[in-house]
Amino acid sequence: MNSFTPISSLIGGALIGLSAVWLMASSGRIAGISGILGGMFSPSSDKDDKTWRFVFLFGLIAVPLLMVLIRPDLDIVRFKLTGWPLIIAGAFVGVGTQFGRGCTSGHGICGNARLSKRSIIATLTFMVAGILTVFVAKYIGLYL
């Protein structure tokens, strides 16, 4: 059972927004994680392109690691689905974000901030799909 955490949510969200604005201001890039990751494996991506993607993802992984080392109380991770079924969930996220060209960050934040019609439709779609999936998963007892 999780409690409502308005302050940390607002601060965390603002940081995500700042990162998105910074990446656009500095490099002219959309801060969409599935796109940045997918582009690393695109044959049309040259060395320069791969470098900034890799370094962005390195920062995305390294900074939270540093933070939980300094403040172990930030390390709150509770899985509701565990073990190998997560491979399937991961594959849905992987394939879905490549077909749909974006995820919660690329469509949900950057695209919606540009008032892109595609992003607004995509966001509504994955929200509804996520809510229905949780409803069904709870109903059939899939979660811990």
Binding site: V95, F99, G100, I121, L132
Partner: peptide, 21 residues
């Protein structure tokens, strides 16, 4: 592709509670 992909992503997101970031 956009709608199907977003729906697929939503299913994986709901199952796991995880998105790529």
């Amino acid at each position: 592709r956009l709608i199907g992909g977003a729906a697929m992503f939503g299913i994986g997101w709901g199952l796991s509670g995880l998105c790529p970031g």
